[in-house]
Nucleic acid binder design. Sequence first.
DNA 1: TTGGATCTGTTGGATAAGCAACACTGGAGC
DNA 2: GCTCCAGTGTTGCTTATCCAACAGATCCAA
Lengths: 190, 190
Amino acid sequence: MLPKLEEKLDPRVKRTRSLILQSFEGLLAEKGFETISVQDVTDKAEINRATFYAHFQDKYELLDRSISLMFKKEIEKRTLNACHYTPDNLRNLILAVCEFLANMHSECAQPHQQFESLTEGTIKKIIFELLSHWLTQTKSKISTDIPATVATWAIYGLASHYSHMKKRPVLDKFVDEALPLVAVNLEQFA
Amino acid sequence: MLPKLEEKLDPRVKRTRSLILQSFEGLLAEKGFETISVQDVTDKAEINRATFYAHFQDKYELLDRSISLMFKKEIEKRTLNACHYTPDNLRNLILAVCEFLANMHSECAQPHQQFESLTEGTIKKIIFELLSHWLTQTKSKISTDIPATVATWAIYGLASHYSHMKKRPVLDKFVDEALPLVAVNLEQFA
DNA sequence: TTGGATCTGTTGGATAAGCAACACTGGAGC
DNA sequence: GCTCCAGTGTTGCTTATCCAACAGATCCAA
């Protein structure tokens, strides 16, 4: 969650990675993840296939990094990355995760169960790191791992539930109802 | 005016050229041509300056090729590149040139006299080639150089005049009035 | 079962792009 | 006059990307 220090990259590397990521995001909107081949990605990106493997192990790593970047962008847009724990920030975080997952379901073709389980860990990891960062901002010496873990799983669970609902309620109301249940575990850091 | 045969270019070359051209077109909308440096172009394109010189002699060649591409795109959009001489196609061509020059004046910052004289030759060359192509489509053995030259200069002159008018008339009316004067020289090819 | 077709990951050698340095030019200001 | 600054072209060397080719995997149809 630190400000990126890797700005001084070879321009060719930046270009290549960004072309691959763009291409992949475009394809995700068109077809299911399983039916996307590495060739599809490199064709659309107008990048050599061998070059792909110089940057990503395989398409699963591409998925990880892509989802990770998209989610982090969402977090940064809401300036949640440069703050500490407050119930209001927590509320905002829950909103962000809900909207992100809901978006994935509407924008990605075939958001299968399998696809979601591939991205779940990636997203939870970012939530956990963000919460840990928030909680250690406070002076208290209380261990943050347990509360952060509980909150992370709860938040992701809520968002997953929300995104799967057939008739989604207004998001604000949904979060109003859920927020206290998560916040109660973090009271000591407020 | 032939369909481009240079499709099988190294992807890196295509990428680089397109980045440079994009960057340049963007800069043209911001500042006057004279104040644009090669460094400006390469900075915005995120391309090394030395790489620029592997593709263009200097910024004047960049201007030529950029204008040339933009104008040809305009011609292709109107499918004027794959046809022969008719008064109607001629009318369409005049429209294209008028709109192109008028656009340059509104979209480019500082469309100075000097800037226009730099691009005039480039544009006329394309008009001339297109007209020559049209006229040689006909079976007649008449030499096409002279009529094509006359028409080229007349068309460019009309468009330049139109684009400089303080209160531009409706383009259609303007062209209606001008068309017969140009067409009369090409009657034998109709 | 076999064969064709498609995708995967990987390789070696060719080529384009990056980079830092250079000498040179043409102002702007003192 | 002078220096300072910013831009220009050019260079030798490094690094990333390209490309064609390869062997292996998987799937599907004959």
